[in-house]
């Protein structure tokens, strides 16, 4: 992953005059249909995940694109809570396993404050965890929130990702009589947790 150094990123953004306004970002995400939380510790993060998983009725947690340390912390915290925790590894896994009754937890590379979007660069495991399961939750550090698309354009030019996904809500359609329905091909529900700590240490 090219963009992970939070301190460097924060310096760059602050240097560019950006206001890291987490609450406004989360408000925009909420308007887009995300569940949102702002946490200060891994324990709190896991607690939010467990609450949401319970609310959505899922018992399978699928981790994708998280650092080894963070994945281990989450797995550890969930041990003994009657959840199955899987990790999308470096080899091809049976994709069907990810699909039903699961919550994908993935690492987003950036958030867009103006539109309430979450960005994934190049990470195929994050991509799968955000797309295939019935529910998905993005993990993001405070310093990774960008003001708008044009800051993202700057980041794209710097890092040259091969693939990008910008997620701004659950999978949805209004194709039948303009009735809004969620969960067409991607997740039925989604969440975003912004952490006030370095997630990858």
């Amino acid at each position: 992953m090219a963009v992970r150094n939070n301190t460097e990123r924060e310096e760059e953004l602050v240097g560019a005059g950006a206001r890291l306004d987490v609450e406004k970002f989360l408000e925009k995400c909420r308007m887009n249909g995300f569940q949102v939380a702002h946490v200060q510790s891994v324990e709190a993060l896991v607690s939010v995940l467990a609450d949401w998983a319970s609310g959505w009725g899922v018992r399978k947690i699928v981790l994708g694109g998280l650092s080894k340390q963070l994945a281990e912390r989450i797995r550890g915290e969930f041990t003994g809570r009657e959840y199955m925790v899987l990790e999308i590894g470096g080899v091809e896994m049976e994709i069907e396993e990810l699909r039903t009754g699961s919550l994908g937890v993935f690492r987003a590379n950036a958030g867009i404050k103006e539109t309430g979007g979450l960005v994934i660069f190049d990470n195929w495991a994050s991509n799968l965890a955000s797309l295939i399961p019935e529910y998905s939750v993005a993990l993001l550090e405070m310093g990774e929130i960008l003001q708008d698309y044009w800051m993202l354009a700057h980041l794209i030019r710097q890092t040259r990702p091969g693939g990008i996904a910008i997620i701004s809500g659950p999978s949805s359609t209004s194709d039948i009589e303009l009735t809004h329905v969620v969960g067409v091909h991607g997740p039925v529900g989604c969440g975003c947790i912004v952490a006030g700590l370095e997630l990858d240490e």
């Binding site: 925009k28 309430g116 996904a165 701004s168």
Partner: peptide, 19 residues
């Protein structure tokens, strides 16, 4: 709406499920 649910950027080095 300010954004649709997904913007997907694909190219020769995309994010395929295939290794």
């Amino acid at each position: 709406r300010d954004a649709t649910s997904y913007i997907t950027v694909i190219g020769p080095r995309g994010m395929s499920r295939h290794v």
